[in-house]
Amino acid sequence: MSRVLAAASVPNPPLLLPGLTGGPVAEVEALRSACLAAIETLAGAEPDLIVLVGGAGSGELDSPLSLRVGRSLLAQAGLELPIEAVGIPADAPAEECRITGERVAEHRGRVGLLVMADGSACRSLKAPGYLDERAAPFDAMLTEALLARDWASIGRLDQQLAAELLASGRAAWQVMAGALATGELAGEEYTPTCHYRDDPFGVWYPVLTFS
């Protein structure tokens, strides 16, 4: 009998790796606090295993940034549990993501799911991808869908648009949707909580838990 007891979705900018900002940067520390709070919520469900899901770009399949940031945040939170890492190719089609999520839900043991995912990176003139007017509505739609546990809408996210907006979390969120939809069919109940949502550097960083 598999159980995904709870899930947390946190962004994965390199900024969250220890020391990478040089001196402390207030905006980054606020984000980090929210991420650690989300991991604390995840730990509160008393899992005995963390399944860590993150997108992997084509050139980084060995050690994707998303999984490195995830492992680092787990360490920063002091959470000492076995970690099973699942790298999903950033360009994986929705169907592949859903199936991967369903497999996570079939895992034996008490699973805490940590999903590494960012929204668009085109939210301002200084954003990494410059300003794209489609970014804000895209991020609003996907964030509301996540908080509404509308897994079907997450499964239908426009892959092409997400790629154009540099929304690197699309595939990982679709894995999470597959896993939590399966969990709900098996009788789990997930209460969504938003710990943080902002774009201090033009990238959309939602920090959410489902527990």
Partner: peptide, 11 residues
Amino acid sequence: NPPRRAVRGLA
């Protein structure tokens, strides 16, 4: 000594 605030390219 590290930079005081490095965020460029790291967001």
